[in-house]
Computed example of a mutant assay.
Amino acid sequence: MTDVLRYTAFSDDPAGGNPAGVVLDAAGLDEAAMLKIAAELGYSETAFLTAPPEGLGGEPGRAFTVRYFSPKAEVPFCGHATVATAVALGERIGPGELVLATRAGTVPVSVTREDPVTREDPVTREDPVTREDGAGGLRATLTSVEPHTEDLDPADLAEALAALDWPAADLDPAFPPRIAYAGARHLVLGAATRARLADLAYDFDRLEALMLRLDLTTVQLVHRAGPAEFHVRNPFPVGGVVEDPATGAAAAAFGAYARELGLVPDEAVLTLHQGADMGRPGVLTVELRSGDTRVRVGGAGALIP
């Protein structure tokens, strides 16, 4: 019997963030079995760990091969399932550095323990509660593979807008449409208003067809709330999911996109809010470092009982 763990990523509240499946020992599973587990679980992605390839590096017992499956297919990289996996590992082998071999490349992940926090009770939403043991939760920060962006054909933009039922006038001209990559490909579109972003009702089949043709994992819809603060949403029809509640790979791609286009400084910490429109609020922290083109994406995680 395969032990499938359930963790949420980018929130310390099991009811928030993006849930992921985590299989810490997938050595006996083939691709068909992994896909079956992911489909039965129904989360946007499930991560499957096996032994690391020779020469990967990292501390003994802290390096792994990871494969990610949506309910429909394998994907090369998944940020939220990486964070969920790192938190699950951190609870078992302690905070520290991890090295993950993914189809997209080698992904280092740092797991740290946060200071204890006080937040509203998850049931009553009224009385503040803290952990009885006084310990904070775990936080994981991944470092992306080398990112890049590419131009989007005007005909493909027109098709994306038609599938989303967005008039071109609803786009934010400060955010040129681009395809951005930091382990997986995402179409980045800027919404001129928060109301436009909140009103998401798209043609599932039409958008899926375009995304399959362009080899896209999600569509990253973005509204700027401040100099370093953004609200984002991610349709994910190619994974068999209407919307992803918190998307780490897209956050990394967006960080590279924003820096390349001069929308943010070369060195910056960005806050991305995602999932609130779905009732699963999460927070993704995107760190850009001057002199390092890779992007770091971090967030909290929690076991889903």
Rank of each mutant, 00 (worst) to 15 (best):
P281V: 04
A101M: 04
H186V: 02
G79I: 00
P176A: 13
V87D: 04
V123N: 11
R206V: 00
A163E: 02
L164C: 05
R206D: 04
V117G: 11
A73G: 00
R92H: 03
V222W: 09
E97V: 01
G137W: 06
T149P: 10
M278Y: 03
V129F: 06
E120T: 07
Y68C: 05
F48R: 00
A101N: 13
D121T: 01
V107A: 01
G17N: 02
T85H: 09
L56H: 13
A163G: 06
D205C: 02
A160S: 10
T271V: 13
L164E: 02
A84F: 04
P76Q: 11
A201D: 15
L187N: 12
F175N: 07
R294V: 04
V264R: 05
V286A: 02
M278V: 03
E45F: 10
V109A: 06
A174P: 02
L89E: 02
E45V: 09
V297I: 00
V295N: 10
R280F: 01
V129P: 11
W166M: 10
A251Y: 12
V283S: 10
F230H: 04
A195Q: 14
L89K: 01
L221Q: 10
R139F: 14
G291Q: 05
G279C: 07
G21D: 09
T193S: 14
V297W: 06
V22N: 07
G190W: 07
V242W: 14
P173A: 09
A253W: 03
M34L: 10
V297Q: 02
R213K: 13
L207Q: 11
L197S: 06
T46W: 03
V219T: 15
A20S: 11
L207P: 08
D203P: 11
D165H: 15
H80G: 08
A81P: 10
D170E: 15
R280A: 04
G255P: 10
R259H: 11
F254Y: 14
A246W: 09
H223K: 08
F230E: 07
V283H: 09
R113M: 03
E74T: 10
E45N: 03
R92I: 01
T82H: 03
A168G: 08
F236T: 05
L216Q: 08
G190I: 06
V87I: 15
T130M: 15
E91S: 01
L142E: 07
E287C: 02
D30A: 00
W166F: 15
V264Q: 01
N18E: 00
P116D: 07
A180P: 12
L272F: 15
T141S: 14
G240R: 02
A47D: 04
A184C: 09
V222T: 13
P19E: 05
L261Q: 13
A258K: 12
L197P: 04
S290R: 15
L161T: 08
L29C: 05
A104M: 06
D133V: 08
L197R: 08
A225Y: 07
P128E: 08
F48K: 00
S290Y: 04
G299N: 01
A15V: 03
N234G: 09
A84G: 10
P14T: 09
M34V: 04
G190N: 09
T124Y: 12
T50C: 01
D203T: 07
E146L: 15
P305W: 06
E74D: 07
A191M: 14
E159K: 14
F69P: 05
R294E: 08
H223W: 07
G57W: 10
A258Q: 10
D133F: 08
A184I: 09
P14R: 13
